[in-house]
Design a binder for these strands. Structure first.
Lengths: 338, 338
DNA sequence: GAGTAAATCCGAAACGTTTTGGATCCAATG
DNA sequence: CATTGGATCCAAAACGTTTCGGATTTACTC
C-alpha cells in the first residue's frame, strides 16, 4: 500500500507538500501539483481514511441503529424503504453508513453509546427502538449528534423526523365515519411506541368530532405483527359483534385482522371495513386490497439523513420534520349496508 | 474523550501497561489490572477503534456492495433478506458492516476498489452486480478478500455463494412437464446475470430429458422487473397462443406475467400455468398464489458472511457454497386440461 | 551468595495522515 | 540598497493505539 511518504520520496518533495497538493491547497505550485498527482497515480495511491480520521477527529461515517433487522421483520418492508431513503441522501454526501448490530444478544453487552463512541461515528440515526429501551436515553443524553425516527425528542444535538400520526389516524377513522360506520374498533400497536399513543389520540379525536362516544372495549393492543393483529381482531369481533369497522395501527395487523375475519366468516368489505396504516407493499397485493394511510417511508429516511447532515454541519435551523400522510382508498372499506 | 494516556496518568502506570491490561495480556499483575479497569470505568473510557485500526492495519469492518438499493428495488425483498442473513452472522463476530453507495452517479467516479481501499475494509461482500459491470473484475483481481453472491468466480481471496440455479430451473420446468404441459415458454432475466444463463440451461435440460424440442421463440428476455415480465409475457402469449405454461426467472416477472395474462383474458391456472423463481414475500400474497422455486435468501447472506469470515481468518478450506432450492407448489400451476 | 527464571513493568517507535508555524527565494517597491 | 510581500515549500508535532525489546524486581535453586 503506497503512502504519501512514498509519493514524497519519488516526487522529491516533503509529505506536507504532497498532502497539501492532493487536498487542493493554494500554496503549491501548479507544476509540482501535477507532478505529485502523476506520481500518485503511477503508484496507485489510495488515501488512508483511517489515518485521516485519527488526526481530523472525524470519521465521516454515520451509524445506523435499526432494531429488528431480522429474519422475521422482512415482511414489513418499512425498514428497507427507510434505509433506501437514508442511503439515497447519504450517497450524495461524503459520509458512509455503518450498520450496528442491535439485535444480537452478544452485542447487547455494549450500549449503543459505547458502540458509537468506539467506532467514532460522527452521528447516528435511530429507528425502530421502543420507548422503554433502556439505552435510548443514554444515546440522547450523550453528545453524539443523533436523529430519531418516530420518537419525538429534541435537543441541541438531537433531531427527529416522524409523520403526523394524529391527523393520519384521524383521516382513517373519519373515512370510516363518512361511510356511515358508528361502531369502530381499533387495533393499536404496543404501548411502547410513540406512534401508538398518537394514533390512539387521532382515533379519539375523529370520534369526538362526530360526537360518537368511544368505548374502551373497542380498543385492543397488538404488537404490530400480522399474528398479533389476527388474535386481536379475533377477540374484538367475537366479543363485540356490533362492530362494523376496524382501524389498525399497521398494515401488517390489518392483514392479520383480515384473516381473522375470514376465519369468523365475516366478509370484507360487506360486513366489515378495515383501514390499515403505513401502506406497505403488501397492502395493494392482498385481497381485497387494503385501504390504508400512506406514509412516505422513503422520505422518512431521506429527511432523517438530511437532518443529521444539518446537525453535523451546524446548519440546523430546525430539529424537527413532520411529514404528511395520505388516505389511500382501496377495497377493504365500504359504505355501511343497513 | 478520555484516552489510554489519561488512564495511565491517573492509575500511575505507563500506557503500555494500560493497553496490555485492557487487552487481557498475561504480563500484568491482577491488582494493577483491577486498578486500571476501575480507572477506565471512572473516566468513562471508550477505546478509539480508529487509532487501533491504524496501528493494527485491520479495520474490523466488512464492506457491503449492493447495487440497486433504491426506491424501486423495494418490491423485491430479495436484497433485504440477504442483508438480514449477512447481518445475522456478522452480529456474532467482532466486525461491523459498512454500506457503500454504488448507485449514486457521484460515487461512480470512484471504483469499488478505491472505495474499499480508502475505507480500508478488511473484506467485501458483493451482491446484485451485473457481469458486465466494468468494476467487477477490478475488485476480484485486487487483493481484497471478497465474497460474491450469485457470481461463480473464485481465487485465493475470492469466494462465492449461490444456489443451484440449473437444478432449480429444472425442477420448475419438470413440474410443468409432469402436469402435462408441452408448450412451455420461458421469461428469463437479462443476459448479464449468471443466474439467467444457468436457469436457461436448466430449462433446456428439463425439456431434453422429456424429449421435448425447445423452440427459440419460446424464450424471451426480461429485466427481472414486474413491468418487463408483463411486457415479455404479452409478446410471448400473443405470438405463440399454443403456449400453456411459462417459467419465469423471477417472481417479480412472474407477477408481471400474471397481469399480462389477465389483460389478454387468459385464466390462471386453467388456461396458463406459471412458475416463478425466488419465492419472494409477494408470491404467497398475490392471487392466485404463485407456484415458485424457493431459494433461501437469508441463508445466502448468512453463508456469504461466513465464507468471508473464513477468508479473513484463513480458515478457508473451501471457497464455494451452493445452496439447494425447493419447489413450492401453490395455485398458479395446474394439470393441463385437454 | 551467585545465578537463573519468572513476573511485572515501561520507553519509544510505529501506523499514515493533517496542520502549525515558519523558512526560503524572488520580484517589486520605495 | 533595504524592505516588503507573495509564492512555494518544509520540519515536526499531533491524533490514540499496539508492540518490540528490554529493564527491574522477586523468588528460587544450587
Amino acid at each position: 500500500m503506497t503512502t504519501i511518504k512514498d509519493i514524497a520520496r519519488v516526487a522529491g518533495v516533503s509529505v506536507t507538500t504532497v498532502s497539501r497538493a492532493l487536498n487542493g491547497y493554494s500554496d503549491v505550485n501548479e507544476d509540482t501539483r501535477k507532478k505529485i498527482a502523476q506520481v500518485a497515480k503511477e503508484l496507485n495511491y489510495s488515501p488512508n481514511s483511517i489515518a485521516r480520521s485519527l488526526v481530523m477527529k472525524k470519521s465521516k461515517t454515520i451509524g445506523l441503529l435499526v432494531s429488528g433487522f431480522t429474519k422475521e421483520s422482512v415482511k414489513d418492508n418499512f425498514i428497507v424503504e427507510v434505509l433506501a431513503g437514508i442511503n439515497d441522501f447519504v450517497s450524495g454526501s461524503d459520509y458512509d453508513l455503518v450498520l450496528f448490530n442491535t439485535n444480537s444478544s452478544k452485542q447487547r453487552e455494549k450500549t449503543y453509546t459505547q458502540l458509537c463512541r468506539e467506532r467514532r461515528v460522527d452521528g447516528v440515526i435511530i429507528q425502530g427502538i421502543r420507548t422503554d429501551d433502556p439505552y435510548l436515553h443514554e444515546v440522547v443524553e450523550s453528545d453524539i449528534p443523533c436523529v430519531l425516527i418516530d420518537i419525538p425528542l429534541e435537543s441541541t444535538n438531537v433531531s427527529h423526523v416522524t409523520t403526523d400520526n394524529v391527523s393520519g389516524a384521524e383521516k382513517a377513522v373519519r373515512h370510516l365515519i363518512d361511510q356511515g360506520h358508528r361502531n369502530i374498533g381499533m387495533i393499536n400497536g404496543h404501548e411502547f411506541a410513540f406512534v401508538s399513543q398518537q394514533r390512539l389520540e387521532g382515533y379519539h379525536a375523529a370520534l369526538r368530532q362526530a360526537q360518537i362516544e368511544s368505548k374502551p372495549d373497542y380498543i385492543v393492543n397488538g404488537a404490530f405483527t400480522e399474528e398479533s393483529g389476527r388474535a386481536a381482531a379475533h377477540g374484538l369481533l367475537s366479543s363485540n359483534p356490533e362492530i362494523t369497522a376496524i382501524f389498525c395501527s399497521s398494515d401488517l395487523m390489518a392483514i392479520g385482522a383480515m384473516s381473522a375475519a375470514k376465519e369468523l366468516d365475516i366478509k370484507i368489505p360487506e360486513d366489515l371495513s378495515i383501514v390499515g396504516y403505513d401502506d406497505i407493499l403488501l397492502a395493494s397485493y392482498v385481497s381485497p386490497k387494503l385501504t390504508t394511510i400512506r406514509q412516505n417511508k422513503f422520505q422518512l429516511g431521506y429527511e432523517a439523513a438530511k437532518l443529521l447532515w444539518d446537525l453535523l454541519t451546524n446548519q440546523s435551523e430546525t430539529h424537527r420534520m413532520v411529514l404528511e400522510t395520505k388516505l389511500i382508498e382501496r377495497e377493504s372499506t365500504n359504505r355501511i349496508i343497513e
